[in-house]
């Protein structure tokens, strides 16, 4: 029974992680910016669903929540691009400076959310700092109609996950837009010379990144019994880990890594909590252990910078002299 629960958990978490990791890899390989404001998209996506739920008196349809979250996340992404990333790029700032600036942005958004929560709390009298799970009415309706008894989050995550992944696949592989995005990922200067409008494409990438990542937030609120403004931090650690395993370039490997990490996290945690009685907060450490091992054994040098430095050194073995 416990095993079954852990497997269901892994399944739902897989979708949450896939939906938030793929955009991270996508944004890095297209824009070459290591975005530390990534958790913002997740948190804001989740809270848009929560606020909707509160103002629609707990009658939120999934597609409305998805629409609003996607737009909010996308707009935040574009805003970041226009206010932070583009000016820094024009100034010719180093990748590290981009990274630090996005970290600054993360905290601005994070605490802005706390303020929004508090203001709404005063207005509505409900606590937003730890919110119970949100049920989507349209999905429940369909489930009742066709007599599907599985927990709602399985249906939601499967539907939303498949729709997003398929549309992204079509967008990237079958449209001109996708070719342009891949072109700019391979060689920015060459792509610009070929007449690809860099600015617009970057803004669009950030819109997509923010939007898709925000969708993982609405899955989270559907599944988790308690959503706090800190969820982004938890998810993003796994996103970075998955993107890292995918070498910051392969979307497929990133997706597989997300699923594998979700499974490891839940199964190993089940084992640890059974034998040692540890709390859920330790789950992060499990993921990190996996990443650290990979880091030592097979680091993704090249993508995201890196040194041609090998640990196994054999200082000049002597060869027979002439």
């Amino acid at each position: 029974m416990e095993i079954a629960r852990a497997l269901i958990c892994s399944y739902v978490f897989s979708w949450i992680y896939i939906l938030s990791s793929i955009p991270l890899t996508l944004s890095y390989r297209t824009t070459k910016v290591f975005n530390f404001a990534h958790p913002v998209f997740i948190t804001y996506g989740a809270y848009v669903a929560i606020f909707l739920n509160e103002f629609l008196n707990k009658n939120t349809p999934l597609f409305i929540a998805a629409l609003f979250s996607f737009t909010t996340g996308g707009l935040i992404g574009v805003l970041n691009y226009l206010l932070i990333i583009r000016p820094l790029h024009q100034r010719g700032a180093s990748p590290n400076v981009h990274m630090i600036a996005t970290m600054g942005a993360w905290f601005v958004y994070q605490y802005a959310l706390y303020i929004i929560c508090q203001v709404l709390m005063k207005l509505r009298g409900a606590s937003f700092l730890s919110y119970p799970s949100v049920e989507y009415v349209d999905i429940s309706y369909i489930q009742r109609a066709i007599g599907l008894n599985t927990p709602q989050y399985i249906v939601t995550s499967t539907t939303l996950g498949l729709v997003v992944i398929l549309s992204l696949y079509v967008l990237l592989n079958k449209t001109m837009l996708g070719f342009a995005m891949r072109g700019i990922a391979d060689n920015q200067i060459l792509a610009t010379l070929c007449g690809i409008p860099r600015d617009k494409l970057m803004a669009l990438t950030w819109f997509l990144t923010g939007g898709i990542t925000a969708l993982s937030g609405i899955l989270w609120v559907n599944f988790s019994g308690s959503t706090t403004p800190e969820i982004g931090l938890h998810v993003v650690v796994i996103n970075f880990a998955a993107a890292f395993i995918g070498g910051l370039s392969s979307l497929l490997v990133t997706a597989l890594a997300s699923a594998a990490l979700a499974l490891t996290e839940n199964i190993v945690f089940l084992f640890l909590s059974y034998h040692l009685g540890l709390q859920p907060t330790i789950r992060l450490a499990i993921v990190f252990g996996v990443v650290f091992t990979i880091l030592v054994i097979r680091p993704p040098l090249g993508a995201g910078g890196g040194l041609p430095y090998r640990f196994r050194t054999r200082i000049g073995r002597k060869v027979a002299g002439p």
Partner: peptide, 15 residues
């Protein structure tokens, strides 16, 4: 072990 990979990973690992 971390230092030879890019700055982004160093930041993420330490975080």
């Amino acid at each position: 072990p971390v230092i030879r990979v890019g700055a982004g990973f160093v930041g993420f690992t330490l975080l």
